[in-house]
């Protein structure tokens, strides 16, 4: 496509992100050994969300694409959040 801009991300950035993802994975695994009660799932989800945002923005180039794609992804995240929130209406009130 003529109008598309090509964004070349330096390898160094990829390596930093990879290191970050590995560190966060190790953190997740470590946290499973510690009893944090109800916060266990919350923290695990936060870490997973941070990892996903790295993958989406850097590896999948969302950071450099048309804003429409970012909005679409945000819409999907909101939808998924609503689905999880409604599911929790069951789990938190049993």
């Amino acid at each position: 496509m003529e109008n598309e801009k090509n964004h070349i991300i330096p390898y160094k950035t990829f390596l930093y992100v990879l290191a970050g993802l590995i560190a966060l994975t190790l953190t997740s695994v470590t946290l499973t050994q510690i009893s944090l009660g109800a916060m266990t799932v919350t923290i695990a989800l936060i870490i997973a969300a941070v990892k996903s945002s790295f993958v989406l923005s850097i590896f999948m180039h969302l950071k450099f694409e048309n804003k429409m794609f970012s909005r679409a992804v945000i819409g999907v995240i909101l939808l998924l959040s609503a689905v999880i929130a409604i599911t929790l209406l069951d789990y938190l009130n049993r």
């Binding site: 409604i86 209406l89 069951d90 009130n93 049993r94």
Partner: peptide, 18 residues
Amino acid sequence: GYFIWGHHMFTSGMSGTA
């Protein structure tokens, strides 16, 4: 339609709020 799946589970033992 995304938010109404629970009506298949009314007799499954969900919480009253759900």
